[in-house]
Design a protein around this nucleic acid. Structure first.
Lengths: 170, 170
DNA sequence: GTCGGCCCTTCACCGAGGCGAAACAACCCC
DNA sequence: GGGGTTGTTTCGCCTCGGTGAAGGGCCGAC
C-alpha cells in the first residue's frame, strides 16, 4: 500500500513518524474531533463515518500525487492556447494549438503524421509540406519550455521533455 | 476570496475555468454523487452535508497551499481605483479601473478583448481602436509596479508579474 | 559500395490581419 | 484655465498560415 491509513488522535505518534518520513497518508477523523491540518499535499483527512467509495477516492488522489511527485510535471494546455510548464508559458496560434492537443493526448507516445494532419486541418490538408513547416515552428516555440518533438521516421512524431534522452534508432 | 467554492456537478464548467486559471478551489459534493478527482494540490472536495468547521478546515489548508505555492502577493484594487502592490500604488482612471478589475479576476489567465470591451464600456464600445489605446495607457501605468499585460494574439490579454515568466511569444 | 528515392528539415517569401503607439482633438472636474 | 482623462485617426510592425524550393539523412536496390 502506497498510502498510510492513520487513526486520529489515537495514532498521533505514528502520524509524526510518517510525516517526517515523507510518506503519503490519509488521516481518519472521528466525529467531534478536530482534524490535524497541514499544507503537505501528501496528507489528507476524512471525517468518519465515511463510505468506502469516499475513502478510495481520497486514497487514489494521494496515490496520484505520490506518482506525480517523482515525475517532472506534465505540460498543461488550456482552451486559449496557453501552454504552461514549470511556471513558464507560451501562447500557441490556432493550428499549433490543435497539433499540440493531439501530441499531449499521446504524451511521450508516437502520433502519426496523418493524425496530426487531421487534427490540424479538419477540413483537409492544404498542401503537402504544411505539416512539416508547422512542426518546425512548434518546435521553436516549445524549446524555451524544455519540450522537444522527436521525429520517429516514417511513423510520426513524439512529444517529451528535453533532457529526457531517446537513443535514436529509427 | 483566495479559494473558489464550486458546487458539483452543477458548476462543472466553472470548475474547468478555475482549474485552467490555476486558482485554488473546494468542490462541494452532494450525497450519492462521485467527486471529481485530480492530483492538483490546489483542489480539494468535501462530502455534503458537512459542518462549517470541516469546510473551514479544508479551506485553510488550501489557502496555506496557495501561499506556499508562491502566489503570495496579488495586486489589490480598491473601489476608488487605487491599485496597490508591494508597498507601492498607482491610481487608475474609471475606464482603466474597470479593465483592471477584469484582468485581476482572471489573474494570469487570458481575458478576451471582447470581455474587456464589455467591462470597460458597458453601453457599447465607442470605436474600433479604443481598447488598444487604453491597454497601452494601462501598461504604462502598471510598469512602475512591475506588472505586465501580455498580448495573446487573437485571444486577448493576460496580466502577470513582470520578471516572473517572461517567455511569451505572441 | 554507390546510387537513387523517400522522408524530413529548414529557409525565404507573400498576403492577410491583429496589434502598438504616436499624435491630435475633445472633454471633464477641480 | 490647467491637468488629467477619453475618443479618433493613422501609420507601420509583427504574427500567422500557406507555398515553393534547397538540402540532408536514412534506406533499399543494385
Amino acid at each position: 500500500m502506497q498510502v498510510e491509513l492513520i487513526r486520529w488522535p489515537a495514532e498521533e505518534a505514528r502520524l509524526s513518524e510518517v510525516r517526517s518520513a515523507g510518506l503519503a497518508r490519509l488521516v481518519l477523523v472521528p466525529e467531534g474531533v478536530a482534524p490535524p491540518l497541514t499544507a503537505d499535499p501528501l496528507e489528507d483527512w476524512i471525517r468518519l463515518p465515511a463510505s468506502d467509495d469516499d475513502v478510495r477516492s481520497r486514497l487514489r488522489v494521494l496515490e496520484d500525487r505520490v506518482r506525480g511527485a517523482g515525475e517532472a510535471d506534465r505540460p498543461d494546455l488550456d482552451e486559449n492556447g496557453l501552454l504552461r510548464l514549470g511556471g513558464q508559458w507560451v501562447s500557441l496560434p490556432p493550428v499549433e494549438h490543435r497539433l499540440m492537443t493531439v501530441l499531449l493526448e499521446r504524451y511521450r507516445a508516437v502520433v502519426s503524421r496523418d493524425a496530426l494532419a487531421r487534427a490540424g486541418w479538419p477540413d483537409g490538408i492544404p498542401g503537402r509540406n504544411v505539416l512539416d513547416v508547422h512542426i518546425v515552428r512548434l518546435r521553436r516555440r516549445l524549446a524555451p519550455l524544455g519540450l522537444v518533438i522527436r521525429t520517429v521516421r516514417s511513423r510520426g512524431y513524439l512529444l517529451e521533455q528535453g533532457s529526457a534522452n531517446a537513443l535514436s534508432g529509427g
